[in-house]
């Protein structure tokens, strides 16, 4: 099963203390930020600090993403070149549009040819889609580099580009969210939802995370460590649904043993889509340690201790 990205937590790239503690905050991925969190006068300093941290510091099992500056700025190419030397897990490309992803792809390919004898870097890409054009061209963006493994939707810049107000209800980003989530599913990559900016509104965050999950997002960005557990709760499978999925798989095995092609459970016919969904749900629940006897790591089980319903 591929890596979970329920949370991607932004960490300022010029703050040594926060970088040091990034791996113990519980996020599936941390985004060391060289863009908005760093003033223009400190771009060089942050780039150097992140480079040194990636060479020397252990982030343990936490995925490390670095958000570089837009490739169209003077800092973007400098960031990209420095990051290719240390190869984080993911590079988050801001202001993503077809041209910017193609530019990044070309620069990485040139680096591989010049410095690695054609060998591929291990770093994958995430597109930060945060403009009207980016949303409208999301399919073309996702087709513009084979290194892309996901999209992060940036609702604040998107609404700024649209010239509309951000509201709690989020009606103004509904179309973009739906479009990004569906496109990511089509291309088989992760869809990570925009951060919830009111860091003290935990109930609002939980509701927003559940809404994102219902739309098809695989995770949500976080801007404060306190948001991580809440988002994980929002993206956790419902124990009632997990129990039903387990029963579906049990009934399927029995039906197969009896040579039945189609079977029913609780009076309802079970067909291939229901079985596929049950398999996905059980696989995720096992990964999160929600199923007794699963092989989830201690960290993952601890992270889910607060789940409603506990082990199934």
């Amino acid at each position: 099963m591929k890596r979970l990205r329920r949370t991607m937590l932004f960490v300022p790239g010029n703050n040594p203390g926060m970088i040091q503690s990034a791996s113990v905050l519980g996020a599936d991925s941390v985004i060391l930020d060289l863009e908005d969190a760093v003033s223009l006068s400190e771009k060089d300093s942050a780039r150097k600090l992140v480079t040194k941290a990636l060479r020397s510091w252990s982030f343990k099992t936490t995925e490390v993403t670095v958000r570089i500056n837009p490739i169209t700025t003077v800092y973007g190419p400098l960031d990209l070149e420095a990051m290719l030397e240390v190869q984080p897990d993911i590079l988050l490309i801001p202001k993503a549009e077809v041209a910017s992803i193609q530019e990044v792809e070309a620069r990485i390919s040139a680096y591989e040819a010049a410095k690695l004898g054609g060998e591929a870097v291990r770093t994958k890409l995430f597109a930060l889609i945060e403009s009207a054009a980016g949303v409208e061209h999301v399919h073309e963006i996702l087709a513009s580099s084979p290194r892309l493994v996901g999209v992060l939707f940036g609702g604040e810049d998107y609404t700024s580009d649209m010239g509309v107000a951000r509201t709690m209800g989020g009606m103004e980003i509904e179309y973009a969210r739906n479009k990004v989530a569906v496109a990511c599913k089509v291309h088989g990559v992760d869809a990570v939802d925009t951060p919830f900016t009111d860091v003290d509104n935990h109930e609002g965050l939980l509701a927003d995370a559940r809404k994102a999950k219902a739309m098809g997002f695989t995770g949500k960005a976080a801007i404060n460590p306190r948001q991580v557990g809440i988002i994980h709760k929002g993206f956790a499978p419902d124990p009632v649904e997990v129990r039903y999925a387990l029963r579906v798989l049990e009934a399927m095995e029995e039906a197969e043993a009896e040579g039945k092609g189609v079977f029913s459970l609780d009076g309802k016919m079970v067909d291939a889509p229901i079985i596929q969904r049950a398999r996905q749900m059980v696989a995720l629940a096992e990964k999160l340690g929600m199923v007794k006897g699963s092989t989830a790591s201690k960290d993952e089980k601890n992270a889910n201790d607060s789940l409603e319903g506990g082990l199934v």
């Binding site: 040594p16 040091q20 060089d44 300093s45 150097k48 600090l49 480079t51 040194k52 941290a53 060479r55 020397s56 510091w57």
Partner: peptide
Amino acid sequence: GALDYTIEARVETALDR
């Protein structure tokens, strides 16, 4: 209370500048 890599980063940045 900086770690070694932070010390190196800050010294190199100051020298670069």
